[in-house]
């Protein structure tokens, strides 16, 4: 019973974080800062949803497969982010920077 409630909380929080990340990629001003918003959905959101599903599954093969999905996501998502940022920098896309003071103009 407690495990059930915990898993629902995890699943619900994961879904909400996904939406927050989706809002983030529309709110942030340039490509590089959008990568950070996409990072939320790749890490904590995926973590919470997979953990919640794992609690539903219990100690079965399904839980093992969920753990495997989790490991693959956590190895591939930073690699993909790094490759994207690196390719964008080499193609000459300049990030909007703020060196002193707070807030971005646009």
């Amino acid at each position: 019973m407690i495990i059930d409630i915990l898993s629902w909380v995890c699943l619900f929080a994961g879904g909400m974080l996904g939406i927050v990340g989706g809002i983030g990629i529309h709110r942030f001003p340039d490509f590089y800062s959008r990568l950070h918003a996409a990072g939320i959905t790749d890490t904590l959101c995926a973590m919470l949803i997979l953990f919640g599903l794992g609690l539903q599954a219990g100690f079965t093969l399904a839980a093992f497969k969920l753990a495997l999905i989790f490991v693959f996501l956590f190895f591939t998502s930073p690699t993909a982010s790094h490759a994207l940022a690196n390719a964008a920098l080499h193609s000459g896309l300049k990030p909007k920077l703020v060196m002193n003071g707070r807030g971005v103009g646009s």
Binding site: L35, H36, I40, T43, F74, S81, H82, N86
Partner: peptide
Amino acid sequence: TLTPGTVSIE
């Protein structure tokens, strides 16, 4: 890169 808020570029 895994911690949101920082991305290694190069």
